[in-house]
Computed example of a mutant assay.
Amino acid sequence: MKAIRERTGISLQQLAKDIGRDPGYLSRVERDQQGAGAETLHLYADRLGVPIAAITHKEPPSDQDQPGPRDHPH
């Protein structure tokens, strides 16, 4: 989450102000020290202009976007 926010050029303080959340809370969420509710996640993603999946997946977005064969058990 933090990497995506930083790529958008939005500070943690500005994001917190924009979505009505405490900066300390968002910092803990970004560091995976605290969970976030669905509403907060949606506000966060909407403010950054990314799909909710971009901030809820653990893999870096670049890994998800790579085309290629997928391993499927047979």
Rank of each mutant, 00 (worst) to 15 (best):
M1H: 13
M1Q: 10
M1E: 12
M1S: 12
M1A: 11
K2Q: 13
K2G: 10
K2I: 10
A3K: 15
A3W: 08
I4Y: 04
I4N: 01
R5I: 02
R5K: 02
E6R: 11
R7E: 09
R7C: 04
R7V: 06
T8R: 12
T8I: 07
T8D: 05
G9W: 00
S11I: 00
S11F: 00
S11P: 05
S11Y: 00
L12R: 02
L12D: 03
Q13Y: 07
Q13M: 09
Q13G: 07
Q13H: 11
Q14E: 15
Q14N: 14
Q14M: 11
A16C: 07
A16F: 00
K17P: 03
K17A: 15
K17W: 09
K17V: 06
D18F: 04
I19D: 01
I19N: 00
I19S: 00
I19K: 00
I19W: 01
G20E: 10
D22C: 06
D22T: 03
D22Q: 04
D22R: 02
P23Q: 05
P23W: 02
G24I: 04
G24K: 08
L26E: 00
S27C: 10
S27A: 10
R28G: 04
R28D: 07
V29S: 02
V29D: 03
V29R: 06
R31W: 06
R31C: 09
D32L: 12
D32S: 12
D32F: 12
Q33A: 04
Q34D: 03
Q34V: 05
Q34E: 08
G35L: 01
A36C: 06
A36K: 01
G37L: 07
G37E: 13
G37T: 08
G37H: 11
E39Y: 11
E39R: 14
E39C: 08
T40F: 00
T40D: 00
L41A: 08
L41I: 07
L41N: 10
L43P: 00
Y44M: 02
Y44V: 02
A45S: 02
A45P: 01
D46V: 08
D46M: 09
D46Y: 07
R47W: 01
R47F: 02
R47Y: 05
P51V: 01
P51N: 06
P51C: 01
P51K: 05
A54S: 07
A54D: 09
T56F: 02
T56N: 05
T56P: 00
T56L: 05
H57F: 11
H57S: 13
H57L: 13
H57V: 12
E59K: 14
E59N: 13
P60S: 13
P60H: 13
P61Y: 05
P61T: 09
S62Q: 11
S62N: 05
D63A: 14
D63E: 15
D65V: 04
D65R: 06
D65E: 14
Q66H: 10
P67D: 04
P67Y: 03
P69L: 09
P69R: 11
R70M: 10
R70F: 04
R70V: 12
R70G: 01
R70D: 07
D71N: 13
D71W: 15
P73V: 13
P73F: 11
P73C: 11
H74P: 15
